[in-house]
Design a protein around this nucleic acid. Structure first.
Lengths: 134, 134
DNA sequence: TTTCATAATAATAATCATTCCTAATTTTAT
DNA sequence: ATAAAATTAGGAATGATTATTATTATGAAA
């Protein structure tokens, strides 16, 4: 197994990700890190994001749009995706681990984790729709 | 709004999808339909899959691997993805619509639907792992 | 603190799924 | 049958992501 060496870039990626609640894409992360480290390359961002997700330090979110999103909050929690503005919102719901147990009762496999994504209209877009009606 | 015209290809795609429980990718669907309609093009498969998903006649499943998968069963149900063989399995669980209600209580948006994917080891891979231990 | 093995990187090419484009064909309402 | 509009094949284009390679940075051991 490969031993990790310290990397400023990787550290910066995690640090940046921890400041954001909106689950940015690799591209967005790249553009932001570039301000601190102008020479960083997009490939480095992708490589480190994969690595970090693999070792479980961050979480990759695949919500159905064209790009993957990343979340520094590895505590299992559901997400909401707005079908209008495509923003991703963390939902604060009670612990849903019981779903894994429930799933395991329905077949013979081992369940380790789950990803739960809700789709609909976010508070902002809901509000805008209401205003347009009047 | 565009009115749909009848299309043998689109019909064949739906018909094929209904015979499968394994949620094939566009590529797999293409290779199978090709045996009945050798001149069909991959673009046609993609276009029709998008269209069918849009009008709600089929369902697109984005589970985190490189390709989208498709399901003719539009009745909401959770999926299981094996982290070893990557197969997708339908889970037969009790109705989980209450999750949408629960989610709506946690913020101000409108929830229309959800996608629930469990990850772990499928029955076959679990069995294989056991045999290798002995 | 030098040395050295190896991880990490920049830059860029390559890959792969998916979408777009266009001219030709099919469908269907009249 | 006619014509408008949807559908198609074939291939080019796009866009996200991964792979490649030569160079640089890191960290353990001497």
């Amino acid at each position: 197994m490969k031993t990790l060496k310290h990397s400023r870039h990787r550290e910066a990626i995690v640090r940046f990700l921890m400041t954001r609640k909106d689950h940015p894409t690799a591209e967005v992360i790249y553009n932001n890190i570039k301000q601190e480290y102008p020479k960083i390359s997009l490939g480095t961002v992708y490589r480190n994001l994969s690595l970090l997700a693999e070792i479980g330090e961050i979480q990759k979110i695949t919500c159905g749009d064209s790009s993957d999103h990343f979340d520094a909050n590895i505590n299992p929690h559901p997400h909401f995706v707005c079908k209008e503005c495509f923003r991703i919102i963390d939902l604060e719901m009670d612990n849903l681990n019981f779903l894994n147990t429930l799933a395991e009762k329905s077949f013979d496999g081992d369940v380790e984790k789950h990803q739960l994504i809700f789709y609909g209209k976010c508070p902002d877009c809901k509000e805008k729709a209401l205003q347009n009606q009047q």
